[in-house]
């Protein structure tokens, strides 16, 4: 049985919600059951934004979760909040940009993706979230790049379809630069 419970969290404007949306569309393209539940409200303005995405081959029960298989976090506040919400044995992916207090847990698998730095390097900040999503793709085998591209075609308005290639390239960059992070136990 496949059941993947994901939280994506960062600042409003980082593309957190759209990353979740593309993930949900990609799951739908493969006939999975999907749910996408955003945080909404005043906290989104300039503060943190997060979205819970569930992909499953069974009927999805609760769209609201307390613990996650995978947490993708893009700022310090989200790392502080969601590191402890990863199930033991689960996965934490984070961008090191702006992080001063790194993860501490040794019972989960932790990965870094320097997506903000890479997006700046290739001079295309708008594909930042796709680099992050690429990192997630690399670590999971139930979704392929083609599925995400299909998801992009479905979720992007037609006038943005010329950006799909750049997004697909960004996914590949993410797959290349994601690296495991080991917590040093002192």
């Amino acid at each position: 049985m496949m059941n993947e419970e994901i939280i994506i969290a960062g600042f409003g404007g980082q593309g957190v919600l759209s990353m979740g949306k593309i993930l949900a569309y990609s799951g739908m393209m493969q006939n999975l059951e999907v749910s996408w539940m955003p945080s909404y409200g005043p906290e989104m303005r300039g503060g943190t934004a997060n979205v819970t995405v569930i992909l499953s081959n069974e009927r999805i029960s609760s769209p609201i979760l307390n613990l996650y298989d995978t947490a993708i976090v893009l700022n310090q506040q989200s790392l502080d909040k969601f590191e402890r919400k990863v199930k033991p044995g689960g996965v934490l992916i984070y961008d090191t940009n702006g992080i001063t207090k790194h993860p501490q847990r040794t019972d989960i698998k932790i990965f870094q993706v320097e997506a903000a730095a890479e997006a700046a390097r290739i001079n295309n900040l708008r594909v930042f979230n796709m680099i992050v999503l690429g990192a997630y793709l690399k670590l999971n085998n139930y979704l392929k790049i083609e599925h995400i591209v299909e998801g992009l075609e479905k979720s992007l308005p037609k006038r943005y379809h010329h950006t799909i290639q750049a997004n697909a390239d960004a996914l590949k960059i993410g797959m290349d630069i994601v690296k495991p992070y080991t917590v040093l136990v002192s």
Binding site: M28, E33, V34, S35, W36, M37, Y40, I60, P63, I64
Partner: peptide, 10 residues
């Protein structure tokens, strides 16, 4: 309620 209103599903 806000959950069912704001969430996306198939």
């Amino acid at each position: 309620d806000g959950v069912i209103g704001q969430m996306m599903e198939k």
